[in-house]
């Protein structure tokens, strides 16, 4: 469990990134911090592994305040994935993944073996192990980033827009892989994003942030969509611009076509068993 207890971050130049923020992140779940740029979500994330020190308040992991732990040791116990993979360009993929185990004193051979297992876990072909990061695609680099973060089997995974810089198709692929991994690994994940679709796809709990780290709403994806707390959340989720307000209309040849507020088609409705429901009679509409 990770707790943010009334944390505030004010920078020397007077700007306040986060003001009096409190949140409990339950263990073995994914909490998404959702907000546009400048809302302080990365600052919050980085408070967990002491890359940022709060000006006041504290962050606790399982009841123990993080400020009592040496930063270097703390960071080695927490996985961290960032937008640009941040891989060391002069180290091969396998050595990049083995970074933290090596730091924690695991022998080179054992660390490399562990790295190869992780590559398999994140669907990286074994022959990529000897490559350098620059020889990989953006999506592959992010997979390496995830594998590196998982290398020493941390309980906590911090993910800062990890899929923000890859193209949409790869992003969806990486998201579903993360979901699959999470079923298996059950880490405590804090995931930062500005992408509402990503938040809905990954979060067990979503925290919608206004600027200054002010909480607009906390809830499950379903709660957010069904009962947005206010106009801000509703607008942020796209409930007001018609993107998520959908209508079903009878489809020529049977079934239903789903259209958004502007009448643009976004999909079809099928029955629970995958068959198309019988078309209602035109008079019924």
């Amino acid at each position: 469990m990770i707790e943010f207890d009334h944390v505030t971050k004010t920078y020397p130049d007077g700007t306040t990134a986060v003001r009096d923020f409190s949140l409990t992140v339950p263990s073995h779940t994914t909490t998404v911090l959702l907000g546009s740029s400048g809302c302080g979500k990365t600052t919050l994330l980085r408070m967990v592994n002491r890359m940022v020190e709060p000006t006041s308040g504290e962050v606790r992991i399982d009841g123990e305040t993080v400020s009592s732990r040496p930063p270097v040791q703390l960071r080695r116990s927490i996985g961290y994935v960032m937008q640009h993979s941040g891989l060391m360009p002069h180290r091969r993929v396998v050595d990049n993944i083995a970074t933290v185990p090596r730091l924690n004193g695991v022998s080179r051979g054992a660390a490399q073996e562990r790295a190869r297992d992780l590559m398999e876990l994140v669907d990286l072909a074994p022959e990529l192990a000897r490559r350098y990061p620059a020889q990989l695609s953006g999506g592959q680099q992010q997979r390496v980033g995830v594998a590196r973060a998982l290398a020493d089997d941390p309980n906590i995974l911090l993910m800062d827009e990890p899929f923000g810089a890859v193209d949409p198709l790869v992003r969806v692929e990486l998201q579903s892989q993360l979901r699959r991994l999470q079923v298996q690994l059950r880490k405590t994940i804090i995931f930062v994003t500005h992408d509402i679709d990503e938040a809905l796809a990954l979060g067990d709990q979503i925290v919608v942030l206004r600027s200054g780290g002010e909480v607009a709403q906390i809830g499950t994806p379903r709660e957010l969509v069904e009962e947005p707390a206010d106009a801000f959340v509703s607008r942020f989720l796209g409930l007001q611009d018609g993107r998520r307000r959908l209508h079903a209309s009878p489809r020529v040849g049977g079934g239903w076509t789903v259209v958004d507020d502007t009448g643009r088609p976004v999909g079809l409705i099928e029955g629970e068993d995958g068959t198309e429901p019988a078309a209602p009679s035109p008079e019924g509409c």
């Binding site: 080695r76 060391m88 002069h90 730091l103």
Partner: peptide, 27 residues
């Protein structure tokens, strides 16, 4: 040296000295 690589190295738990010796100096 790319600040993002240095940042990532710190986030993985490299000490300042390790960041200097294994990242900043070689790069």
């Amino acid at each position: 040296v790319d600040r993002r690589v240095v940042d990532a190295a710190r986030a993985q738990g490299l000490s300042p000295w390790q960041v200097l010796v294994t990242v900043e100096v070689p790069l």
